[in-house]
Nucleic acid binder design. Sequence first.
DNA 1: CAAAAAATTTCAAACGTTTGCGAACCACTT
DNA 2: AAGTGGTTCGCAAACGTTTGAAATTTTTTG
Lengths: 342, 342
Amino acid sequence: MNKPVTIKDIARKFRCSPSTVSRALNNHPSINEDTRRNLQEYAQKVGYQRNQVSLNLLNTKTASIGVIVPTINNYYESAIIEGIDAVLHPLGYTLNICVTNERYLLESEYVTKLLSNRVEGIFLSVSQETYDSGHYEHLENVGKRNLPLIFIDRDYEGFSAGSVTIDDYHGAFAAVEHLISTGRKRIAHLKGPNGMAVTEQRFRGYTECLTKHGLPVEERLIINTNFKVESALEPTAQLLELDHRPDAIFGVNDQVAIGAMKVIREKGWRVPEDIAVVGFDNSPISAYISPSLTSVGRPGRQIGEEAARIFLNYLDATTKKDVPVHIVLPSELIVRDSSRGI
Amino acid sequence: MNKPVTIKDIARKFRCSPSTVSRALNNHPSINEDTRRNLQEYAQKVGYQRNQVSLNLLNTKTASIGVIVPTINNYYESAIIEGIDAVLHPLGYTLNICVTNERYLLESEYVTKLLSNRVEGIFLSVSQETYDSGHYEHLENVGKRNLPLIFIDRDYEGFSAGSVTIDDYHGAFAAVEHLISTGRKRIAHLKGPNGMAVTEQRFRGYTECLTKHGLPVEERLIINTNFKVESALEPTAQLLELDHRPDAIFGVNDQVAIGAMKVIREKGWRVPEDIAVVGFDNSPISAYISPSLTSVGRPGRQIGEEAARIFLNYLDATTKKDVPVHIVLPSELIVRDSSRGI
DNA sequence: CAAAAAATTTCAAACGTTTGCGAACCACTT
DNA sequence: AAGTGGTTCGCAAACGTTTGAAATTTTTTG
């Protein structure tokens, strides 16, 4: 680990001033052609890399923005990041990705770190713990700085921040309505962890759709999972042992739906003939498993892009107190084999 | 977007020097108890956040390290990142995650950016384009700086860098040997893109295992894919139309294997009775699809952890020219239903 | 009360770079 | 000889913070 070569080092070597070196390397016109060439060649030779840290300090800006997400280990989240990057990278911004693993402490820590690293904006997909606890003090300083803050996935009213969310409610509603339209009457729901926005909105879509169609909302048909495939196994087994077993299962996401399908078949039932299954996320494999999985798609990439645009609008905003922008993107039901009509 | 409050601002407000403020906020002992409390309270109130950028400049270190990966949209890569973070986060390091989408240009750009942002080490999983082109000039300056560089997944001999790789060869070998041991004799391979290390090593495991067991390596049974599930559809269809169809398919990864299974069943064959299928990655769903997928597991998290430890050793190394560390972790075959004996 | 000791605060430099302004130099022109 | 104009370069300040050493104030001591 050698010390990086600095402009001063080069200046000393050439017995000239740092200003000259700086100008030479930046192709400033008022530098003699020869000196410019010599300096540039030497800089190249010794592997000079301008110290961006010092520039960030000088300009009091960093051209970097923070992205805090609960996890990157799934299609949806990484699509969001891709979307943000697609818009902001061409403008010279660097993404600072932070993964909280759904932990409040990490989220809080990352916010502080990003703040003190002087990012120019923060994209935040609130962790489960944060959402559960309702603690938003870690965002106070973001507010004080009036730094562009854009909520992704989960909105929070306490701040004058932008947000891009998904219409989980109508997605769930459509999924359940589809099941009803194919003749299913006892539709179970493998719910996510209580209290989370995604969970509750999908749940509301589920219940309200049932109600609209005159079907009862049975508590026994609603069981919690934690989004992971394993967490669907036991609940599904439970559902199948009911006196009056469900004829359809709506999973809070694809993982859960896949877990449900596995158990259904292990117990000797058929999908979709005996029990239809619908998931949420339209993850890439959902089309390729067997039977292919009906699912509600979320436009992850588009979320990222919209969020990035909101950020850019913030920067342009001349009037300080613009009304924060809230965008709700539609989700889309994609019907496949796991829920074909009986 | 307000200007962040600086130590100078506070000093001006309290008619004292910046040094006093700095020491007060850092609980330096030689500061009067009252002034300390006053300053700290005020700093808290106005949301002062120390400017890490200036500190990085002052200390000529950043406590951040760069992680360059081709993609984050899969279990394996994100497990690696998790592993790195698990070791380095407790030590105060920040991860700077860069996603290249398998592009050389982006990789090169990110290396430069990380270098000029003065990261203290770089973890690099070389992009496909880089590997194909064999261009490693973008790493020259990393070499000149003698900055800790650890290759992940794909080693490259040109640099005195550490590396943590997976024993793809033996993993593939074991997978094919398993298929042979269950009586399969015509084993096809859905290969990755030519030239990539993972691809070729798994391919070598495949061919050498066949040869060892006296089975012919038939060109018609080897077709390229691009790792994605769609890219397996057409090739699999081709394989099934051969006069003498294969009785097993070894996919370069799980995605491809899942695509193959879909086509096999659509054409009316059974897995594993007619055709066995084996994948690579042991991705979480592989256990839960039907039939569950036999797969070779890669310990992503462990890779990250080992890589981080190599990095830490670099730092400790008193002798400059230590021999770079190369670790090869084993992969592990996990047998499931898709390849049960006939 | 003076002097010494202790407590508290300020000064100045440093990290690496950019940039407005002015200085030095040269060649020409009048 | 003096002015003009152009080219090329250096000086110094700035970004925000820390820190050793020096300066100031307060307290203790004889």
